[in-house]
Design a protein around this nucleic acid. Structure first.
Lengths: 253, 253
DNA sequence: TCAATAGTGTCTTTCAGACAGTATATA
DNA sequence: TATATACTGTCTGAAAGACACTATTGA
């Protein structure tokens, strides 16, 4: 039944909305828990990696899972409703990576709400997709610390590393979104350093899409982005080998 | 804090997952209400329409809103967790349109979870996008019945018809998704009849995108879809004017 | 001067947009 | 036979894939 009457376990009528809200008391109909789960990606040595944490307790004890946590809904009353969904995602991202807020790309992915996906109680999970630049990667605890968190190649996850809950499904959706979006958006620029060479950007595309790109054709595509003002030259030069490569930066506006 | 330890308001340790779950009791941490809201579109006389219902009670009494309702989470225990999120969307769609399940296109759109979006209590809304074929349109109560539900042109909604809650934002996102997806998916076929002429399909594209398409170029595009086997000829002919137009059908597989 | 990587040019196909013309059926 | 609508063809430009060549710099 739709909420056409505005009743949320309380009877009508009230003349004004103020009066209604003042008298309103939330019902005790069962409510689900709502979590935010994160598919955090980075690129490390030409490989697309996802951040996983090992579960210390039941259920799925010992299994690897996407990081996440509960959304703070405050007291749930009209006044104190807690944090925004997106705020929760930012907070979790910050907690998991130790990176300053706003340093990573973050977008909502999909909401997973099958009954029984968590054996404890009804949990609806709003999944987010996050991208960490290689330069920031070393700042994350997960980088070196071989504790209960780590970056995993997608091939590892696919081959014999089962994930907790429906996280394999969430991860798949995140990869699909990333792969699809890289073609028609500027999302790739959130997976390279602030300044980058043509080759570096190409390697991001290759890692994300899981295929190679023709070097020459990619140069042309790159130059078109320069012509369009999406990318600008920066004075810097990269000197990894004999000849030095020019550096570029993404121009957000 | 992420749910790395598996604790959901209950202390460790348990040797087996079975033992843990048997002893598990859900906590009384505040939980949000979760609703499913629907942006249901159809095309009527070359115009993209959305289904709105008028709110009979507070808050936003008298305002128009997207149809929706609460997700049934059962008792919230391990055993009885209620209906899947998608199931809730199907149920709402069925209730709102009176159309048989499976007769409409349905996909998850986005989850809206800003604190304060509902003045009563914390409500997280999982929005869905639904499409109703013109042929089915007349079967919906909203068609003729000038009661508390009706199909509205987007221009009407934009110009001086304020929506309740953050539904204007939801609607905008739905329109954007529809507009974007029509170019690279087969979503348009869910807005025409089972059989259709070239012109009819073009009019769907025009209504969705809010622009005109060159007739001849569209024919070419149409024929490519025929060549690719996406569309097949059906014996039927449409006889709206002097010359009869050929009819086609979408070939899902 | 050689080896290794940076960067450029051409051919072809595919598809979209602009535009002009032919075919068919009813009145 | 006239007219309204169904349907077809050509030119052009943007962009992607395949492939061969030139330029720069350190060792």
């Amino acid at each position: 039944m739709p909420d056409v009457t505005g009743k949320l376990g309380h009877d009508q009528p009230f003349d004004t909305e103020e009066a209604f809200l003042a008298a309103y008391r939330a019902t005790n109909y069962p409510r689900p828990s709502v979590t935010v789960d994160l598919a955090i990606f980075t690129i490390f040595r030409g490989d697309l990696k996802v951040l996983l944490i090992q579960r210390g307790g039941h259920p799925y004890r010992g299994a690897w899972a996407l990081p996440g946590g509960f959304v703070d809904v405050g007291e749930g009353t009209g006044k104190d409703q807690g944090e925004d969904l997106e705020e929760a995602a930012h907070r979790e991202l910050e907690e998991e990576t130790n990176l300053p807020r706003g340093s990573c790309y973050l977008e909502q992915l999909y909401t997973f709400g099958k009954a029984g996906r968590d054996p404890r109680t009804r949990v609806i999970s709003v999944a987010y997709l996050a991208l960490v630049r290689p330069a920031l990667q070393e700042l994350t605890v997960a980088g070196d610390d071989a504790s209960d968190a780590g970056w995993f190649s997608l091939s590892e996850v696919g081959a014999g590393l089962p994930l907790a809950f429906d996280h394999a499904q969430i991860l798949q959706k995140a990869v699909d979104r990333l792969r699809g979006k890289v073609d028609y958006s500027t999302i790739a620029f959130d997976l390279v350093g602030e300044s980058f060479t043509v080759k570096e950007l190409r390697q991001v595309y290759e890692a994300v899409k899981g295929r190679t790109y023709d070097e020459k054709n990619f140069y042309r595509r790159f130059r078109r982005m320069c012509d369009d003002g999406i990318i600008v030259r920066v004075p810097e030069k990269r000197t990894t080998s004999t000849r030095h490569a020019a550096c570029y930066a993404f121009k957000s506006r």
